[in-house]
Every structure is written in structure tokens, then in C-alpha cells.
Design a binder for these strands. Structure first.
Lengths: 250, 250
DNA sequence: TTTATTTTGAAAGAAAATGATTGATTTTTG
DNA sequence: CAAAAATCAATCATTTTCTTTCAAAATAAA
């Protein structure tokens, strides 16, 4: 039986019964336990179901169509891998800043729930963070509809109350001259401030962000790398001596 | 039988019967006593039920998902009417504070979209506000999971940047001595501060909040009314001379 | 064909859930 | 009130399920 077949079958069963036991799946598919477990792991990562001890359960309040689209989206898996790795860098007791954006959002399932503090300007992140019972603080400021990010002068000021052990940022592009780039200047200002307030900064960038630039060039610009859009030359790189910026890639 | 299955079953039974004995659960599930006890411990920790000697009981304050829906649908029409009226008080150019909570949330569809500014600590409100393209600002601070409200010391400070023409608050109860009440002191502090910053304050209260108190008594306490929980006597009423507080009822 | 890559199954050790037992605590009964 | 009965929390051994790892089989690529 082919892998996609099994996956379909499992989803079918879970749709009907809400819960399936591993043993049932073994009987029905005839596959080995290892295979079924692998299937469940994959399907859970793609948000089709939730694994529970002894089987798997349907997840509530979620339609399966969007996940289908997500799945076909080519770089989702890559995104998730980067996010997973980034999350693994977080240690107990850390104070962490999470930027808005879909790549950063992927980190949330992998965050250690206990004994960390998260500060974010990503409004989309909040339901999941609170659902996971992670101590979460939102930045105050203008709620930008398009990106669901909190930005603006107030947001920068609001951010200044905090200090972070680690800061995780998303980027729209990486450019040999400008460094990391974002289209919105207001968002760029937040990112800059977050870098300034963090001991370590990590920029999450999936393959699609690199365009033609080689890894070597990226490596070169890390030393002077700074989130920027239309910041003037003086501003660029002014914080780099105080913080460590690392690019997280697959 | 899988653990989540048992949990579901227990909650189901408790929903129907209000009280279940351990012995019943033993018979029905076929699990051992230890297991059932462990289940009850977990479910109590998660606030789904209350353990009593010999079994478990439904808890009164917290109704479950479906019953929660029932409750909200029961008062929904009333809530919506109040909300609609409250929203009609808002004029062009107003700067408005919207408290967290489901009653206030009902106002959003009725808000005039153009030329108003909304500030809120209600995280649940944001998607709809942004969807309606209303200029929205979030307060910064701790994101409280249970109520989806932003609270805490930081939140109060964050609020202080703003001034409002009108302030709309929800309440948990209205009490002849204490005035309006909320169970959480932190939320009470936010409400107090919002009142302080507003020219006019409106408290939205549907019938269910009044319990035994008559309208007359409510009217009496309007002059000294202040959102309070465990604030000391000095704090009570200290802002009332500066603001107008009105109770909005059907 | 040969060589990678992916998929699969099997096995070992870790983790979680379970059931039985103990003695303490609470409730009931006389 | 005190004894008896029932319920409870805590602990430990057992069973079940999970994750990890590795090698064989199947599949795709060279």
C-alpha cells in the first residue's frame, strides 16, 4: 500500500471516529507499527491530526482544506524545519522576542512551554501561545491589518521596557548591500529595536528568501547585518557590535 | 480504552448527571480505581470538574463549551441590543477605548468604520476590528490566556499614553456596596485607569449581571460607581468627579 | 546495470499509563 | 463518642506505548 493511500485512509478513519487506536490502523492497513507511527508523525506535523498516547485524534475547530493548501505550498516543510531548529536554541529561563510573520509562527509548537517568557508583536501568534500556556506579553501600538503586526512609534517605545536573551526575526529578503530587508519601514524599526534589546538575534530565512545570493555572500555580510529598509547609512550596523546576529537556514 | 476517550466519557456523564460516583465510572469504563482517580485529578486540575468525596461534580461557575455557547446564545440578543446602542453613542472623530470581554465584542459590527480610533486590551476583538479596517491600537502587557485580555502593570502604563472621548467597559457583576465588580484585580486596575483617561465612561451590563439588585439601587450608586475588586476604600471613587459613568442597559 | 535515495520493518531502551497495595483520612454507623 | 466502613493519596511493579536507531527492501536516478 502506497504512503499517500495510507494517509488518506487514516484521515478518513479519524474523520469518522474522532479517535483511532494504533492497533486498529495496524489491522486495517497491514503495515508495520513503525510505518504507522511515522505516518502519524507526518500527519501531525502537517496539522491534519493530533497524536495521543495509543493513537491519534481529530483536531477540533480546524478544517482540512487550508492544511491541504499549506501542504502543497512547497517551502512549508523547510520553514518548519528552520523554525524547529530555531526553537531548539531556546533554553530554560530564556526571555525571548518573537517577531510577527508566518515563519516565526511555525516556531510556536516547538517552544518549550515551561519557564520561558515570550514577548511578541505578532497578533497571529497569540492564540497559539496562550493555548500552550506560555507566559506571553504583547507589545502595545498600532495593529496593522495586513500583517497582523503591532507597529508604530508606540510599539517601539513599548518594546523598550523589555530585555531579551534571544530574538527571532523573519525577513522578506536578504540583499548583498542592504542586508536583511523588510518592505515596511515601521516594521523595520521594530526589528532594529528588538535586535538592540537582545543578547543574541536569529534571523530565520527559508530558501525562497535568498534569491540569487550565495551562502558565501550571506556569510560575508553577517558581520554588518542589520534589519533595514530605508534607514540611512548612519543607522545601519550601529547595533551590530552589541549583538550577535545569526542567520538560521536549513 | 484510550485516556482521552475516558476523559470525554467522564465529562459527558458529569454533564448529564451533575454528579458521578467513582463506582459508576469503574463499571462504565472498566478501568481500575487508580486510573479513574488519576483521571479525576487531571480533569480537576484542568478545571473541568470538581472532585468530591466518592466521585466528582460539575462546577457551577464554569460551564463547558456547549453550555457556554448556550449561555451566550441565551443572552446574545440582549447583549447585542445593548452593544448596538452603545456603539450608536460613538461619533465621528471619537477616540474610543474598548474593554475586553464578549459583551463589548458585540459592539464591533456596529462601530462606524471611518474616522474613529479604537484602543483596546481585548485580543479577541482584533481580528474583527482589523477586518473592518478600523484604526486600532493594542495595549501592551501580559496576555492573559483565560480571558484573552491584556493586563498587568505594563498594560496600565501602556494605557496611559492615550486619552479617550468614550470608554466602554464590561463588568462581571454589579453590587450595591462594591459597585461594578470584576474577579481579577489586574483587570480591575485597567478598567480604573481607562475610566480615568476618558471623558465619558459607559458600562455595558446585560440583565444577567444584575442578580437581585433593582434598577433603583443601581441608579443610586452611579454617582460613586467605580470599577473595583479589592481596591482599598481610598481608591474607590477617586476618579468619579472627573468622569461621567453611565450604565447602559436594555 | 550500478548507485543514491526513500521507504519499510525490527529491536532496544525510554517514557507513559496502568493496576495493585499500603496506610492515612474521611464518612458513616452504632 | 468510638468503631467500622468507605474513600483517598502515595508508592511500586507491570504492562503498554513511544522514540530512536539501524539494516534490509523497494524505488528512483545515473
Amino acid at each position: 500500500m502506497l504512503t499517500p493511500e495510507r494517509h488518506q485512509l487514516i484521515l478518513q478513519l479519524i474523520k469518522e471516529k474522532s479517535i483511532v487506536k494504533i492497533q486498529e490502523l495496524l489491522d486495517i492497513t497491514g503495515a508495520s507499527e513503525s510505518t504507522i507511527r511515522r505516518d502519524l508523525t507526518v500527519l501531525e506535523e502537517e496539522k491534519f491530526l493530533k497524536r495521543i498516547h495509543g493513537g491519534a485524534a481529530r483536531l477540533k475547530g480546524k478544517l482540512q482544506e487550508p492544511s491541504m493548501n499549506e501542504k502543497s505550498s512547497k517551502n512549508l516543510h523547510e520553514k518548519r524545519q528552520i523554525a524547529k531548529f530555531a526553537a531548539s536554541l531556546i533554553e530554560e529561563g530564556d526571555s525571548v522576542y518573537l517577531d510577527a510573520g508566518s515563519t516565526i509562527k511555525e516556531m510556536i509548537p516547538f517552544l518549550p512551554a515551561k519557564d520561558i517568557v515570550v514577548v511578541t508583536n505578532g497578533l497571529m501568534h497569540l492564540p497559539e501561545l496562550m493555548d500552550r500556556n506560555i507566559e506571553t506579553y504583547v507589545i502595545g501600538g498600532y495593529a496593522k491589518p495586513k500583517t497582523n503586526a503591532v507597529i508604530g512609534r508606540g510599539a517601539v517605545a513599548s518594546l523598550e521596557q523589555y530585555r531579551f536573551d534571544k530574538c527571532f526575526l523573519g525577513v522578506n529578503g536578504i540583499h548583498p548591500h542592504s542586508g536583511f530587508t523588510t518592505p515596511d519601514q515601521e516594521e523595520a524599526m521594530i526589528k532594529s529595536k528588538a535586535i538592540f534589546l537582545s543578547r543574541e538575534t536569529y534571523v530565520l530565512a527559508d530558501e525562497s528568501k535568498f534569491s540569487e545570493i550565495t551562502f558565501a555572500k550571506i556569510a560575508d555580510l553577517q558581520e554588518a547585518a542589520i534589519i533595514t529598509n530605508s534607514l540611512d547609512e548612519d543607522t545601519k550596523g550601529q547595533y551590530t557590535s552589541k549583538t550577535t546576529i545569526k542567520v538560521v537556514t536549513p
